[in-house]
Amino acid sequence: MNIKNDPAINSFLQRMPEKVQKTFTDEQLMHLKVAIGARQWGKHKVDFRFVLSFFSYRYYIVFLSGRNRRDLSVGEQRVSIYFQALFVALVALFSSCIFLLVIYMFKSALGIDIFDDYSSGVWSWFKELFK
Rank of each mutant, 00 (worst) to 15 (best):
V62C: 08
R15T: 06
R69A: 08
D26H: 05
I3R: 01
V88L: 10
N2D: 08
F99P: 00
E27C: 04
N5K: 14
Q21S: 01
L52Y: 09
L32D: 01
Q84M: 11
F12V: 01
K45I: 12
I114V: 11
K33N: 06
L13M: 05
V88C: 05
E27H: 13
N2Y: 09
S95C: 10
K45H: 05
S65N: 07
S120Y: 11
G75D: 10
E76W: 09
L64G: 00
V79E: 07
K43F: 14
F55I: 15
R39D: 11
D71N: 13
E18R: 12
V79S: 02
A109R: 09
L93R: 01
Q14W: 04
Q28F: 02
N10Q: 13
F12N: 01
K45R: 07
V102Y: 08
F99T: 07
V74G: 00
R67H: 07
L101V: 14
F115Q: 07
F48S: 09
I3V: 10
K22H: 09
D47A: 05
S53K: 15
E76M: 11
Y60E: 11
F130W: 12
K43G: 04
R15K: 09
A35R: 09
V62S: 04
G111V: 10
L29G: 01
D113K: 09
V74N: 00
L93K: 01
G121H: 05
L32F: 14
G111D: 06
K131E: 14
S56W: 12
T25M: 06
Y82P: 00
F12G: 02
W123Y: 15
T25Y: 02
A92D: 03
Q84T: 12
H31S: 11
K131D: 13
D116H: 12
V102W: 08
V51L: 08
E18K: 10
A109F: 10
F24M: 04
Y104V: 04
A89H: 02
I81L: 13
I103N: 01
G37D: 02
S108Y: 05
D6K: 06
E128T: 12
V74D: 01
S120L: 13
V88I: 13
I112K: 02
V91Y: 06
L72A: 03
N68E: 11
V74C: 00
D26R: 02
L72W: 03
D47M: 03
K127N: 07
G42T: 00
N10F: 11
F50I: 07
I98G: 00
S73K: 06
